[in-house]
Simulated assay, not measured.
Amino acid sequence: MTNTPTVRGPEQRKKDLLDRLTGEADIWVASASADGLPYLVPLSFLWDGTDIWLCTRLTNPTGRNLSTGGHARLALGHTRDVVLLGGEVTTFRGEDVPVAAIDAFAAKSGWDPRGSGPAYVWFRVRPITVEAWHEEPEITGRRLMTDGAWTV
Rank of each mutant, 00 (worst) to 15 (best):
T4H: 05
Q12A: 15
A101C: 11
T146L: 12
S109N: 02
I139R: 07
Y120K: 01
R124V: 12
I27R: 00
T79F: 08
A30F: 00
G141W: 11
D81V: 07
L43P: 00
P38K: 08
L46P: 05
L54G: 01
E95V: 12
L21C: 02
A30D: 01
D35F: 10
L76F: 15
G115E: 13
W53G: 09
A30H: 02
T68G: 08
F92K: 04
W122G: 01
A30M: 00
K15A: 15
K14A: 12
L66M: 14
P137A: 11
A132S: 14
G86S: 14
T146I: 01
T56Y: 11
W133G: 05
T6P: 01
P137N: 09
G77R: 02
E95H: 09
L74T: 07
T22I: 06
E11C: 00
D81R: 13
A119P: 00
R80A: 08
F123E: 03
W111H: 04
L18T: 06
A72K: 05
G148V: 09
P10W: 04
S44L: 05
R142C: 11
V82K: 02
V121G: 07
N3F: 03
V89W: 11
T79W: 11
H71D: 00
R143Q: 14
T56G: 15
V41I: 10
N65W: 07
G63K: 13
A119R: 08
G23S: 08
A107I: 10
L17P: 01
R126A: 13
M145A: 09
R124M: 13
A132M: 02
R57F: 08
F92P: 02
S109E: 04
E24W: 06
T129P: 06
G9R: 02
T91D: 09
G94Y: 02
W111R: 13
G117F: 07
D81W: 12
R20W: 02
A72Q: 05
E136M: 14
A25V: 14
D19N: 14
A132T: 10
W150F: 08
W28F: 12
A72T: 00
K14Y: 08
C55T: 14
A75M: 15
A106H: 04
D103R: 12
G77D: 00
W111D: 02
D48N: 11
T6S: 12
V83M: 04
T91A: 15
T129V: 12
M145L: 12
P118I: 12
V29R: 05
G70W: 06
L84I: 11
V121D: 01
P98R: 03
K14W: 11
R20M: 04
V29F: 05
N60Q: 09
D96T: 10
P38M: 09
S67L: 04
G110S: 13
T91C: 14
R13E: 02
E136D: 10
G110D: 06
V41Q: 05
